[in-house]
């Protein structure tokens, strides 16, 4: 095991640096979560994602009908980890009420964008474009128009791409919200997952 006498080569040089493997492909997970709306809870969620080597692509968060319970939709790339780790690790957070991977579940998704366009001197192009968007005009003055557009994430992305060449085109976009109508997210679902016989508790 020790160094050869000529000091040149270790018997384990065949272990010398190897290329770093690529992550096992893009298997972004769509995750629906409910959590207790306490101070710092989002920090716990994002810390878990970073700590486990996942990557957060999008996030939408807001209230639910249940007081004190927030609902989230996350798109998370599991990186090098097995995809089920996303839900299993998030389920361990004490403030998490439920967490489901709905990637492979029939679901509906919705995204909203606020688009700003410069009108002055370009009304002839901008105003018809705004009309074609079929969005809701939230603000219009001589200089600018702000219009809200919404739709399924992929469709909205295409629509926004089409606006890129318009004068002063700028937008902000919410992370997609998703829900699986066949599988309503309930308080009980995380507890049920804990008892899952598959041993994949916290999993699907």
């Amino acid at each position: 095991m020790s160094i050869a006498d000529d000091g040149r080569q270790s018997p384990h040089d065949h272990l010398a640096p190897r290329p770093i493997p690529e992550p096992t492909g893009r298997r972004v997970r769509v995750v629906a979560m409910r959590l207790e709306d306490r101070a710092g809870v989002m920090q716990r969620v994002t810390n878990c994602i970073q700590r486990r080597g996942f990557r957060l692509e999008t996030c939408a968060v807001g209230p639910t009908p249940e007081p004190g319970i927030a609902g989230l939709t996350l798109r998370i790339d599991p990186g090098y980890q097995p995809p089920d780790q996303v839900v299993k690790q998030l389920a361990k957070l004490i403030d998490v009420v439920s967490v489901e991977d709905i990637t492979d579940t029939p679901r509906v998704e919705w995204t909203t964008a606020l688009v700003t366009l410069e009108r002055r001197g370009a009304e002839a192009i901008v105003d018809p474009a705004v009309a074609r968007l079929e969005g809701q005009v939230l603000h219009r003055d001589a200089d600018r128009v702000v219009v809200a557009v919404a739709g399924p994430p992929a469709e909205l992305a295409t629509q926004l791409e089409g606006l890129r060449s318009l004068p002063g085109a700028d937008w902000v976009c919410s992370g997609p919200l998703a829900c699986a109508p066949g599988q309503p997210v309930t308080m009980a679902s995380a507890a049920a997952a804990d008892a899952a016989p598959s041993g994949q508790a916290g999993g699907q």
């Binding site: 389920a91 598959s198 994949q200």
Partner: peptide, 14 residues
């Protein structure tokens, strides 16, 4: 801890 099952070694009986 369910998260330890299948994290590295794949198990057919977790």
């Amino acid at each position: 801890d369910p998260a330890e099952l299948g994290k590295t070694v794949q198990s057919d009986c977790p």
